[in-house]
Nucleic acid binder design. Structure first.
Length: 590
RNA sequence: GCGGGCGUAAUUCAAUGGCAGAAUAGGAGCUUCCCAAGCUUCACACGUGGGUUCGAUUCCCAUCGCCCGCUCCA
């Protein structure tokens, strides 16, 4: 038994059996867009339905939302996508590297009077760390900027410099730092490439969001964008959902739907598409300070909490871990074995600045270990951004919090204020902001924090396809070797649950009995009828689309009502009645 | 966006400056059959657009797409 699931093998099968087609194929195809065929759309629907069932319907604390793809452009300004998704890019004519103008350009253009390298390193611990990193990684490489391969390190360098504009390095200092000859660039009037010193192109706009025009007038004032994620609509509609769903924090809002990103390089089949579908949950929780006021103490992971049922005293850390576990459970329940994916905790220097923690669930795809979904603890960043930009309050009123606050005497309040201020300032935040925040807490008000589990439908499906694929070598009666291709989908995800065959098609009684069984089953389950070719051939066809059970109506069926039920994975057969078969299917679909 | 490789049937592969073949898969029929059996039969391809040429699937250019490596991936 082997599973040589190269992406080519998978994509061939997907095309041959009607799972996935290249979009617009008759016109040569279009890069980064894929269509789901008869089998694919059934399977994709099953994945989405199961996510919705697990995330929304079986929970009391999650409500649904289905928002539009095109929204007010101000949403993307508030979320930060407009700035970070449409940066001008430069290309180096010499080394052909592509870089964001605002990252590299700034260093080179906004140079101040020369600071010596040693001064910078001595005075700036952060920058010293970066330089150290470069030295460490640069072993065996020529010591120049090319040794900075990690974009986040570059970002950190820019960030460190930006915080201290008076200490921007000169171009010469940068080149000296990385061992390049300062003299060679000194006379240059064209800003050089920070990697090789070569000539850069002018910054060109590089939009990662798809643009469109709302209304018939093609005017820049009417520009709108196709959403690059579904999450923002949830934040924008937060107050509406809250006031109509009879929910109170902690609770979540879930949404699935299409998103669009103008990826630089869509690659790896459907893994990184330009049009894709997301399943996102924004789960809103109390700030830890509110939990502390209500419960007296905040539970953290250090307390080794039981994660099975949410508790009032959970802090953000426990909630985050809780959702990581929930997501892993769901992924497994779809049929991905536990050992096929890993839980990757992003390092502090990999986190977005507003994120407190982010876990990637990564699957071993044939092309490498890649992110399947992410679970981020995003603090109150998103709601606060929308509150700031829209001018509308994103605060909630929390009655238990108000009650808890009124029970505190002045001394306890002062002590609490001091504690929060000391905590915030130790994390580099403003003391006044902390005091305002606590004053609001005492009134029972705060902007909720959020835990965001965000999954890609297409990625999940690709992982399930890769995982399900198996080529089995079989020997027939004559000892002849034969290869069977089987898709081991879990019954819940399988596009077709049951196939029905008449053993022979030229015996009217048998044929009509088989039709009767089929008509009965298809009312409830996705079913497939096949009367063509030898019975073995029909079994193999179903194996390739992963149908868990095949039913063959034969002569005995006419006598006792039982038929053969053949199991996809074991190829074993058993005789069952219709009722027994239905019970078997129901059992597997729970 | 850059560099390299590659585009022939639904799939996997041949061949060719002069009628493009096969295997598998698919349809119809016979066989009435429990793991791709057999027989008969049918349909299906040179990604697209230019150029060179008497003639281009083949050579050249462009374009689109795929793969690999960069780059990018809030």
């Amino acid at each position: 038994m082997s599973a040589p699931s190269s992406l080519d093998t998978i994509s061939s099968l997907c095309k041959r059996r009607g799972f996935i087609f290249h979009s617009s194929e008759v016109y040569g195809g279009i890069n980064g867009f894929w269509d789901y065929g008869p089998m694919g759309c059934e399977m994709k629907r099953n994945i989405k339905d199961d996510w919705w069932r697990f995330t929304v319907r079986t929970r009391e604390d999650v409500a649904g939302l289905d928002a539009t793809i095109i929204m007010h452009p101000a949403i993307w300004k508030a979320s930060g996508h407009l700035d970070t998704f449409s940066d001008p890019m430069c290309t180096c004519r010499a080394c052909k590297k592509l870089m964001r103008a605002d990252q590299i350009w700034d260093i080179l253009l906004e140079s101040a009077a020369g600071q010596s390298l040693q001064t910078l390193i001595d005075e700036k611990a952060d920058f010293g760390k970066i330089a150290g990193w470069c030295k460490g990684k640069g072993q065996g490489m020529s010591p120049n900027l090319a040794s900075i391969q990690k974009p986040e390190v570059l970002s950190a360098a820019v960030e460190a410099l930006r915080d201290n504009p008076e200490q921007y390095m000169s171009v010469q200092a940068i080149y000296t730092l990385f061992g390049n000859d300062a003299a060679s660039t000194e006379a240059s009037t064209i800003s050089p490439c920070p990697y090789c010193g070569g000539e850069l192109t002018e910054p060109r706009p590089f939009n990662l969001m798809f643009k469109t025009i709302v209304g018939p007038v093609d005017d820049p004032a009417n520009v709108a964008y196709l959403r690059p994620e579904t999450a923002q609509a949830i934040f924008a509609q937060f107050q509406n959902v809250l006031s109509t769903s009879r929910q109170t924090v902690p609770f979540g809002i879930a949404q699935m739907g299409k998103s669009f990103r103008n990826e630089v390089t869509p690659r790896n089949y459907t893994f990184r598409s330009r049009e894709f579908e997301q399943m996102e949950l924004e789960f809103f929780i109390r700030p830890d300070e509110a939990v502390e006021l209500i419960c007296g103490k905040v539970k953290t992971m250090a307390d080794n909490p039981d994660l099975s049922v949410p508790q009032d005293d959970w802090g953000w850390e426990v909630w985050h871990k809780y959702w990581v576990e929930q997501r892993k459970f769901w992924i497994q329940s779809c049929g991905l074995p536990k050992d096929s994916f890993v839980e990757y905790w992003q390092k502090p220097d990999e986190l977005a600045h507003y994120a407190r923690a982010c876990v990637d669930i990564q699957y071993s795809f044939p092309f490498g270990v890649q992110e399947l979904e992410g679970i981020a603890a995003r603090s109150d960043f998103d709601l606060s951004q929308h509150q700031k930009h829209s001018g509308k309050s994103m605060e909630v009123f929390d009655e238990p919090l108000k009650l808890a606050a009124t029970k505190l005497d002045d001394a306890a309040k002062t002590s609490f204020i001091n504690k929060v201020v000391s905590d915030w300032t130790s994390r580099g935040k403003d003391a006044e902001a902390a005091k305002t925040f606590v004053a609001k807490l005492f009134e029972g008000k705060y902007v909720p924090h959020v835990i965001e589990p965000s999954a890609g439908v297409d990625r999940m499906m690709l992982a399930l396809l890769c995982n399900a694929y198996e080529e089995q070598k079989l020997l027939d009666d004559k000892g002849k070797e034969d290869v069977r291709v089987v898709m081991h989908f879990s019954p819940r995800i399988a596009p077709v649950k049951v196939a029905v065959f008449p053993l022979v098609k030229n015996k009217p009684e048998l044929y009509s009995k088989a039709r009767e069984v089929f008509e009965h089953l298809r009312r409830r389950y996705s079913s497939f009828w096949d009367e063509s070719g030898a019975i073995g051939r029909r079994y193999r066809r179903q194996d390739e689309v992963g149908t868990p059970w095949c039913v063959t109506v034969d002569f005995q069926t006419l006598e006792d009502g039982t038929f053969t039920v053949r199991d996809r994975d074991s190829m074993q057969q058993e005789r069952l009645t219709l009722e027994q078969l239905k019970a078997k299917i129901e059992d597997a679909l729970i």
